[in-house]
């Protein structure tokens, strides 16, 4: 395989739920070490798209390869190198943070040390707190730590910082920057312009299941002749990005 093969290659993805078209002909290439942001309003098809990339959902048509592996057919191999943080994911409610970290570490041959994972998401002090006693933001951070347990080469983060306080948000940004420095490929679903601007090399704008623009943050602003990314989003989609934070 050539060295220029993309880390993620999605070709013509389609997904329909009963009468609703969720994803309508989405194609994407993400290069190794790149951070791609996916922006869009609620229901635009962001989560369905990343779930198809993660091999969690089967596209009605189209194909995804990650590091050259078919997202559905080569699932077992892909699981070794892919870390996924799901939106609204739930973990064993009666286990402590450190117990969950140990459980998830045990799935991988060369996991990151438990203390390092908890430090990375700022949960060292909460390591003996059971999952259901953690705040929503802490649960989300723990879920991100678990996604990184196996030293993944590709990471999918669905709503990285939604619901986090400003301090925790900056900490997660630093975590993503460290991953990027380690040449990890990252797909970041986000609502937050500031986050996308700071972290992402390129941004895909998704609206009604289609990619309507795909460029660097600065490129999107130029393309829309807008003052900033917020304005560019409104100009390109005709919608305000709802502030869910």
């Amino acid at each position: 395989m050539s060295t220029t093969a993309p880390a993620i290659h999605a070709e013509n993805l389609h997904k329909r739920y009963r009468q609703t078209v969720a994803v309508d002909d989405v194609s994407l290439r993400v290069e190794e070490g790149e951070v791609l942001g996916i922006l869009g309003t609620n229901g635009a098809g962001k989560t369905t798209t990343v779930e198809m990339i993660a091999g969690l959902r089967k596209p009605d048509s189209g194909r995804v390869t990650v590091l050259g592996l078919d997202a559905r057919r080569d699932r077992a191999r892909l699981r070794q190198v892919l870390g996924v943080q799901l939106q609204a994911s739930y973990l064993h409610h009666a286990l402590k943070a450190e117990e969950l970290v140990h459980m998830y570490r045990s799935f991988y041959p060369d996991p990151r040390p438990a203390a390092e994972l908890l430090d990375l998401v700022g949960l060292a002090d909460q390591r003996r707190t059971i999952f259901e006693k953690l705040s929503g933001g802490q649960q989300q951070r723990l879920s991100i730590a678990l996604a990184l347990a196996g030293r993944p080469r590709v990471v999918i983060l669905d709503e990285l910082t939604t619901g986090l306080d400003p301090r925790a948000r900056r900490q997660m940004w630093r975590t993503v920057e460290q991953l990027r420095d380690g040449n990890v490929t990252i797909v970041l679903v986000s609502h937050a312009m500031e986050e996308v601007e700071r972290l992402c090399d390129r941004v895909a704008l998704i609206d009604r299941g289609r990619i309507i623009a795909l460029d660097t943050p600065a490129g999107l602003v130029r393309q829309a002749r807008a003052a900033d990314l917020d304005d560019a989003f409104v100009a390109l989609t005709g919608k305000e990005l709802e502030n869910t934070e």
Partner: peptide
């Protein structure tokens, strides 16, 4: 670039961890 990725199934330690934490879940309920 996919040739160096192998499907390794979690080993006995992982199975033991699963049993242990299932037990913890039950004991706390």
């Amino acid at each position: 670039m996919s040739t160096d990725i192998h499907a390794r199934h979690p080993g006995p330690r992982s199975w033991l961890a699963m049993v242990r934490y299932e037990g913890t879940m039950v004991a706390r309920d």
